[in-house]
Amino acid sequence: EETGVRVELAEEDDGEKIAIKLWLRIEDIKKLKGKYKDNEAIEFSFDLERDVPEDVAQEMVESGYVCEGDHKTMAKAIKDRVSLIKRK
């Protein structure tokens, strides 16, 4: 499903790190509610043992990086990427 958002690794995952750096990349602004630039990327750290995707997305909303209306879309994108990383 195309959401307009993609999360990718910002650094090589060696399988050892607990906290990883990720990029939340805006790919299609028409599919989102907030005002973003095409190909805008937000770099953030995610602790694989402690962080919760919904909470991280909420922090982005509170910091003004993400529109409240896009919270669920961002949280799902983060959750999907993190579950792929954890499965390795």
Results as ranks from 00 to 15, higher is better:
residue 1 E to D: 10
residue 3 T to A: 07
residue 4 G to A: 07
residue 4 G to F: 05
residue 4 G to Y: 04
residue 5 V to D: 05
residue 6 R to D: 04
residue 7 V to M: 09
residue 8 E to L: 05
residue 8 E to S: 06
residue 8 E to R: 03
residue 8 E to D: 13
residue 8 E to C: 04
residue 9 L to D: 04
residue 9 L to C: 07
residue 9 L to Q: 03
residue 10 A to F: 05
residue 10 A to I: 08
residue 10 A to C: 06
residue 10 A to L: 09
residue 11 E to T: 03
residue 11 E to A: 03
residue 11 E to S: 05
residue 11 E to N: 07
residue 12 E to F: 07
residue 12 E to I: 10
residue 13 D to G: 08
residue 13 D to T: 06
residue 13 D to Q: 11
residue 14 D to Q: 06
residue 14 D to K: 08
residue 15 G to I: 04
residue 15 G to Y: 09
residue 16 E to P: 03
residue 16 E to G: 11
residue 16 E to S: 11
residue 17 K to I: 04
residue 18 I to W: 08
residue 18 I to L: 14
residue 18 I to V: 14
residue 20 I to V: 14
residue 20 I to P: 08
residue 21 K to A: 03
residue 22 L to C: 13
residue 22 L to H: 06
residue 23 W to Y: 14
residue 23 W to M: 15
residue 24 L to T: 09
residue 25 R to E: 07
residue 25 R to G: 07
residue 25 R to Y: 13
residue 25 R to I: 15
residue 26 I to T: 12
residue 26 I to P: 14
residue 26 I to H: 12
residue 27 E to S: 13
residue 28 D to Y: 06
residue 30 K to R: 13
residue 32 L to G: 07
residue 32 L to K: 06
residue 33 K to C: 10
residue 33 K to V: 08
residue 33 K to T: 08
residue 33 K to L: 01
residue 34 G to T: 04
residue 35 K to M: 09
residue 35 K to C: 12
residue 35 K to R: 10
residue 35 K to W: 04
residue 36 Y to D: 07
residue 37 K to T: 12
residue 37 K to F: 04
residue 37 K to S: 11
residue 38 D to A: 14
residue 38 D to S: 13
residue 38 D to K: 15
residue 39 N to D: 10
residue 39 N to S: 09
residue 40 E to K: 12
residue 40 E to T: 15
residue 41 A to F: 13
residue 42 I to L: 09
residue 42 I to Q: 01
residue 43 E to D: 05
residue 43 E to G: 10
residue 43 E to Q: 11
residue 43 E to Y: 04
residue 43 E to M: 10
residue 44 F to H: 03
residue 44 F to C: 03
residue 44 F to G: 01
residue 44 F to E: 01
residue 45 S to G: 07
residue 45 S to F: 13
residue 48 L to A: 02
residue 48 L to S: 03
residue 49 E to H: 07
residue 49 E to Q: 09
residue 49 E to A: 12
residue 51 D to V: 01
residue 51 D to G: 05
residue 51 D to H: 00
residue 51 D to Y: 01
residue 52 V to H: 14
residue 52 V to W: 05
residue 52 V to S: 15
residue 52 V to P: 03
residue 53 P to S: 03
residue 53 P to L: 01
residue 53 P to F: 00
residue 54 E to P: 00
residue 54 E to L: 02
residue 55 D to K: 14
residue 56 V to K: 12
residue 57 A to F: 00
residue 58 Q to P: 00
residue 58 Q to K: 12
residue 58 Q to D: 05
residue 58 Q to N: 09
residue 59 E to A: 12
residue 59 E to M: 12
residue 59 E to Q: 14
residue 60 M to N: 00
residue 60 M to R: 00
residue 61 V to C: 04
residue 61 V to M: 02
residue 61 V to H: 01
residue 61 V to R: 01
residue 61 V to G: 01
residue 61 V to P: 00
residue 61 V to Y: 01
residue 62 E to S: 12
residue 63 S to G: 11
residue 65 Y to V: 15
residue 65 Y to E: 07
residue 66 V to C: 06
residue 66 V to K: 00
residue 67 C to V: 06
residue 67 C to K: 06
residue 67 C to I: 03
residue 67 C to M: 10
residue 67 C to W: 09
residue 68 E to L: 04
residue 68 E to Q: 13
residue 68 E to T: 05
residue 68 E to V: 07
residue 69 G to A: 15
residue 70 D to K: 02
residue 70 D to M: 07
residue 72 K to S: 14
residue 73 T to Y: 09
residue 74 M to C: 12
residue 74 M to V: 15
residue 74 M to K: 00
residue 75 A to K: 00
residue 75 A to M: 11
residue 75 A to F: 03
residue 75 A to H: 00
residue 75 A to V: 11
residue 76 K to T: 09
residue 76 K to E: 08
residue 76 K to G: 05
residue 77 A to V: 09
residue 77 A to T: 04
residue 77 A to S: 02
residue 77 A to H: 09
residue 78 I to Q: 04
residue 79 K to G: 11
residue 80 D to L: 00
residue 82 V to R: 00
residue 83 S to R: 10
residue 83 S to F: 04
residue 83 S to Q: 13
residue 83 S to E: 15
residue 84 L to G: 10
residue 86 K to P: 05
residue 86 K to S: 07
